[in-house]
Design a binder for these strands. Structure first.
Length: 671
DNA sequence: AGGTGAGCATTTTTT
DNA sequence: ATGCTCACCT
């Protein structure tokens, strides 16, 4: 029997849980228990005898998908929980495509291009097609292509502009490489389901109950996908989201998807979750007053049965240095008086650059902190290299990836040789790999180059055959390949310090270990190498939270903080031009900045301090700042403007003195 | 091939 | 201030 209690839910949540079929829109404000609701609904449906294998919950992040699975596992039978699918949009699309992409003319072993691969290809194309006096920012091109794909705009066929040409070439190249970028995963899956009714029906058959998390962040393609997968009439789709937390418009998210839900799925049941389980009423009041100023919203009013709580403090500080000092000091004092661990504090800001001063202050005070954001494990050179080796083993047609490893480590296949091979491959309409082993090409090479190429091709070819046999030890094959081709040795050699060498080698080992573990986990079903690559190219997280020294005060951007909560929050740099970012004013997206501020505010559980600087270093020089206009909108009950000078000159309060004393005593006792 | 310096832009980043 | 790109040099 189910191990969950419906009595824990409030009436609105229960209404959502008991909803059976037909479209439903759950407007779930920040901290209103949306995951609890959605998972309880799944558990409820299962307890009513519905088949868990026909339930699909779609999220944006792997973390959210994992969390959802864990929650469900705590509520129902393990076997039932395992049968429920909780997956990201991208992982779901990949599954759809691996099964049937051949119908779109791709081979089932297509590679996935991450942003780095994508940029590399775009840059290459730009240099090839642009005339001498033409310039195109590859980043801009990438964004335009992504926007076009996410809006299902057709690839321009006769477009004369440089971007149009680049876009067209980019598509041709990807196709030739048997590769897809992240946007393609969505786009091609939608295309597949759209054009192939039998595939569509197959999936609809499997998806009796469809649930979508963070619906306010979906783009046009994702909306289409939801429409294609939803079965039943009226369509049996349940979406959860909060229009007030839509902060990814710049990435193609369409708030209209949630604002005009009725247009896409007529006559839905609409449920508002407004009871907040996270924050004090002081914090909720400020958040509500702020967000009321946005036009175009569903409208919600968060409330909590709890009392007001500490007032929200708004403080103007002289400059950004003082701001960092002040915040760190406050955190230190607060921890002592409240006996709160460092993990209970977060400093939230608009731009990553703002973390610098905070970091150095925290370090000075010996306060542990964790910085969220930064380069991931998977962007490290050696990881990209190994991934490239594995990718080539599976899809040797992927020239782009082959180029990465063809002379890594240096094996005597230099730029000239590669250029010639590339030219030959284009002339004969072959992949680069095929060209490299073609006798006609090898004949044109020097004896030495031909030898180098032949041994490289042989090494890859042999490993490729071994990997293709079912039930093999993929870890051993890749490991041997990397050692025998001299990659490991070269990696160590190219490091400046022994520590670096150790670190990089450790990364390689970690990666191989993960591959081994993955193969064991997946048994000798399909191709373990393929599924391992799929997994890592769509899940770039890992090792983030699990690690040991990852504790302490959290430094994080407002974007990255969405979905998280902290007892004590400091929102810094709330100035005109930074919080409504200057750029947003020219782009007409101030509403989204307001939502961003709203997201920041609603992260706080117990206490919230907001600071702004009268002066700030910008682009190397000091600039005068005005407070964010949003600060006026917050004003009201339980929001207090405090004077910085007064705080600094105020004598210590008694409890602080006591705490200080206790700290001193503890230090003495410890030494 | 890999290193160095001038020139330049500078928001956010789930996959 | 800082980091990144690209051109040019060793």
């Amino acid at each position: 029997m189910a191990r969950f209690r419906l009595s824990d839910l409030n009436p609105e949540q229960l209404e959502a849980v008991y909803h059976e079929t037909g479209p439903m829109l759950i407007l779930a404000g920040a901290g209103t228990g949306k995951t609890r609701t959605i998972t309880a609904r799944i558990a409820w449906l299962i307890s009513q005898g519905e088949d868990p294998a026909k339930m699909l919950a779609v999220t944006f992040t792997n973390k959210a998908a994992r969390e959802m699975k864990e929650r469900i596992a705590g509520m129902v039978d393990p076997a039932e929980a395992r049968a429920v699918t909780a997956s990201t949009f991208h992982a779901l699309c990949l599954r759809i495509l691996r099964a049937d992409a051949t119908r779109l003319g791709y081979k089932a072993n297509f590679s996935i291009f991450d942003e780095g691969d994508q940029m590399g290809l775009i840059k290459k194309i730009i240099t090839r097609v642009s005339a001498k006096d033409e310039k195109l920012d590859p980043n801009l091109a990438k964004n335009m292509i992504s926007k076009a794909k996410n809006n299902r705009w057709p690839v321009p066929e006769d477009e004369e502009s440089l971007v149009g040409t680049v876009y067209r070439r980019y598509e041709e190249e990807l196709r030739a490489l048997n590769a897809m970028d992240f946007d393609d995963l969505l786009g091609k899956a939608v295309l597949l389901l759209d054009d192939h009714p039998e595939v569509r029906e197959k999936w609809r058959e499997r998806v009796k109950f469809l649930m979508v998390d963070e619906f306010q962040d979906t783009n046009a393609l994702q909306l289409d996908l939801v429409g294609l997968l939803a079965s039943g009439s009226p369509p049996n789709v349940c979406v959860v989201g909060d229009d007030d937390q839509s902060i990814y418009g710049w990435r193609g998210a369409e708030v209209s998807n949630i604002l005009e839900f009725e247009k896409h799925f007529p006559d839905p049941r609409i449920i508002r979750l407004e009871q907040n389980y996270r924050s004090t009423n002081a914090i909720l009041g400020a958040a509500n007053r702020l967000i009321k100023n946005n036009p175009r919203r569903r409208g919600k009013n968060l409330w909590s049965p709890k009392e007001g709580g500490e007032p929200v403090r708004v403080i103007a500080v002289p400059d950004d240095r003082k701001e960092a000092e002040f915040v760190v000091q406050e955190i230190a004092a607060h921890r002592d008086s409240d006996r709160a661990p460092w993990e209970h504090f977060a400093v939230i800001y608009r731009m990553n650059a703002q973390s610098r001063l905070l970091e150095s202050n925290l370090r000075q005070h010996k306060i542990p902190y964790r910085l969220v954001g930064g380069k991931s494990f998977f962007e490290r050179r050696e990881i990209k290299d190994i991934t490239a080796y594995m990718t080539v083993l599976l899809n040797p047609e992927d020239d782009q990836t082959l180029l990465r490893i063809v002379n890594t480590p240096p094996r005597g296949i230099g730029a000239t040789t590669v250029e010639l091979a590339l030219a030959f491959s284009i002339e004969r309409d072959l992949s680069l790999f095929e060209a490299l082993r073609h006798p006609d090409y090898l004949g044109t090479c020097t004896r030495r180059a031909a030898g180098a190429i032949a041994s490289f091709v042989d090494e890859i070819g042999a490993a490729r055959i071994r990997v293709g046999t079912p039930g093999v030890d993929a870890e051993a094959i890749v490991s041997e390949l990397l050692t025998e081709c001299g990659y490991i040795e070269d990696l160590k050699r190219s490091c400046k310090t022994p520590e670096e060498a150790l670190n990089r080698e450790g990364n390689v080992k970690e990666m191989l270990r993960a591959l081994g573990e993955h193969s064991r986990r997946s048994g000798n079903s399909s191709n373990p190498l393929q599924s391992f690559l799929d997994e890592i190219s769509l899940d770039r997280e890992r090792e983030e939270d699990k690690d040991d020294d990852n504790r302490g005060v959290t430094l994080i951007t407002m974007h990255a903080a969405k979905g998280l909560e902290f007892p004590h929050v400091y929102l810094v740099g709330v100035e005109d031009g930074l919080l409504p970012h200057e750029r947003s004013k020219t782009e007409g997206t101030v509403d989204e900045e307001r939502r961003l501020f709203y997201v920041g505010i609603t992260r706080a559980m117990k206490s919230l301090v907001i600071t702004w600087c009268r002066n700030r270093m910008k682009f190397g020089s000091a600039m005068h700042c005005r407070p964010s206009p949003f600060l006026d909108e917050l004003q009201g009950e339980n929001v207090e403007m405090e004077n910085y000078e007064e705080i600094m000159s105020r004598p210590m309060e008694e409890e602080d003195v006591v705490a200080q004393f206790a700290k001193l005593r503890a230090q003495l006792a410890g030494s």
